[in-house]
Amino acid sequence: MALTLTCPICGKRNGYEFRYGGEDKGSRPDEKGLSPADWCDYVHMNTCTAGVQKEWWFHRDGCGAWFSTYRNTLSNLEVDRPEDST
């Protein structure tokens, strides 16, 4: 609840209004030549960055927007740009 996130439609809100949507891994890869291990990596494996990562959030209790943002996983604070990692 302490975490605040900036919804592109509604502005800064309590973290509890949102649902976490995972690390940003880009759009789904083409099926051609995709091994089960590759697919499992895409779906389940995470980089688990200790620092700033790009991730998706869903504004569940508000406007229903899906958006990506940057968060420093060490301080659990949203940051403006990926360069903001201290």
Partner: peptide
Amino acid sequence: TALDLMDPARTTPFLLQGPLCHVP
């Protein structure tokens, strides 16, 4: 709700999309 209905930065009428009693 924890939504800031009294936010001085907004002018009426304005829309907030968010929870009352945790219901969107």
